[in-house]
Amino acid sequence: MWPTRGIFVLERMRAVAGSPNLRLDVMAPVPYYPSIAVGWRRAFARVPRMERIEGFDVYHPRYFMTPKIGMTFYGLSMGLCSVPAMRAVTRSAPIDLIDAHFAYPDGVAAALLSRMIGVPLILTVRGSDINVSAQLPVIKPWVRWALRIARHVVAVSQALAERVAELGVAREKIAVIPNGIDPHKFYAMPREEARAKLGVPKNRPMILSVGNLAAHKGMDVLIEAMHHFRETEAIKTGTGKEPLLYLIGEGPDRIALERKIRDFALEDSVRLVGSLPHHELVLWYNAADLFCLASQREGCPNVVKEALACGTPVLASPVGGMPEILHSPSMGVLVPRSARAFASAMRDALMREWDRQAISRLGQEQTWDRVGQRIRELFASARQAHA
C-alpha cells in the first residue's frame, strides 16, 4: 500500500537473509475492510492475502480494527487473527524465532504468537512505539508485557534504549543497533551532476527535507524558517540569493502546508515534491547544499543517515537518536526546534565550507551488512538460550 514506508525494515531483512540456511517469511497484517469504494481505508481491501516481495513470502492476514476507540485491543486482535496464517506457515517449515518490529501493536501480536507456538521473540523498537504509544495509559501495560516476553529488545538508538529501560526492561537484554546504510544506493556525486539530472536550478542554494507531511516532522517549522530567512537572513549569506526548499513526502498536513506557503508568499521558494521511490532520493540528497529535519520526536531517522552518506551536511532538532548520528560537528549541527533558530542555522551552514567527501565517509560507516551481522548474532543467542 505504501511502498516507501518501512524501507528500513526491508533493508534489515535483506541484510539478515544474506546468511545461508536462514529462511525469512513475513507476516504483515492489515486491518479488515469491506470491499466498498468508500474512504481511504478501502485500499486495505485490495491487499492480497499473500504476495512475494523481493524474494520474501509476505502474508497479509486481516485483523479487526475500530479506528481510535478500539486502540487498546489492536495488538490482541492482530495476534489472534494472525494465528491461521501462522499455522499455514508452520505446515511448510517449522518456525524457530519471531523477529518483530515496533512494540505496538505489532510487538504485542508477535509476543502472543511467540507464546502460542513456543519460540523466542526478538523485538525491535523504533521510536513512536515507545515515545508515543507506550506513554498512553491504556497501551503501556501491553507494551511492557511484550517487552518482557521478548528474549532480546533491539533499540535503534541509545536514547530509545533508555526509554525502554524506564519501562522496566533489564538493560542486559537491550541491544542498541542503529539503522544502517547501503553505500551502493547512497553515495556522493558532484552536486552539479545531480542538479542537472533533476532539472533543478543551479544558481540558488538548495535545502532539502524528506519525511511524512505530518505535524511531528516539522515541515511547517522549515516553511516558517524560510519566511524568516527571506526577511532577515538572505542578505547575510553574502550572496543575497534566497535558497529553495524542497519537501519530499506525502501526508495528512499537505493542504495546511500549501496554505502556509501561500500565506507567506513562498511559492517561488518552497516546493512540495510529493512521495518518491526510495532509489531516486540519492540524486536529491546530492543536489542539496543542506538537509534539514525539524522533527518533534525521532528514533533513528534513516533520511538523515542517507543524506550524510551522500555527503550532505545536516541541520536537525536534538531529539531521539539525532545527537548520536551527528556525533561530529563536521557532519552538521543540532538546532533548537524553532523557525528562527533554523533560519539562523541555515544562514550559517550555507556560508560554511563543508568537506562533503569526509561527511560521506562518516555517513557510510554503519552499513546494513554490519547491522545484519549483529542481528544474526542475537538470533543465535536467542535460539541457544531457548534450546
Rank of each mutant, 00 (worst) to 15 (best):
V89N: 11
L113R: 06
A155I: 00
A159R: 13
A194D: 08
D96Y: 07
Y187F: 09
G199H: 01
A165L: 04
S128L: 12
A85C: 13
H152Q: 12
L113K: 02
A196C: 11
A165W: 13
E166R: 14
L198V: 07
L136I: 14
L97I: 10
D96N: 13
A85I: 09
H152A: 15
L208T: 04
R191S: 15
C81I: 12
R204W: 05
N179M: 07
I181H: 00
F73M: 13
K140T: 15
G168T: 05
S92A: 12
I139N: 01
M86S: 02
L123E: 04
V154M: 00
N203W: 08
P205H: 10
K173I: 06
L97W: 05
D106L: 11
L76D: 06
P84C: 00
A85V: 14
D99I: 01
V153F: 06
I98F: 08
L198H: 12
D99F: 04
S92Y: 08
C81Q: 11
I207W: 03
E166I: 07
A103R: 03
A134L: 04
M206R: 12
P183A: 05
G75W: 02
P205S: 12
A85L: 09
R115V: 12
A161W: 04
A103N: 07
K185W: 08
R171Q: 12
A161Y: 01
L112E: 05
A146S: 01
A188N: 13
Y187N: 05
L80Y: 13
N179A: 09
V156K: 01
A170V: 09
L76W: 06
E193Q: 13
R126P: 05
A188F: 10
S133K: 14
T90Y: 10
V153M: 10
L113Y: 12
M206G: 05
R126N: 15
V119Q: 09
R171D: 07
L76Y: 06
A170D: 15
L97D: 03
R126M: 08
C81E: 09
M71P: 03
I174Y: 00
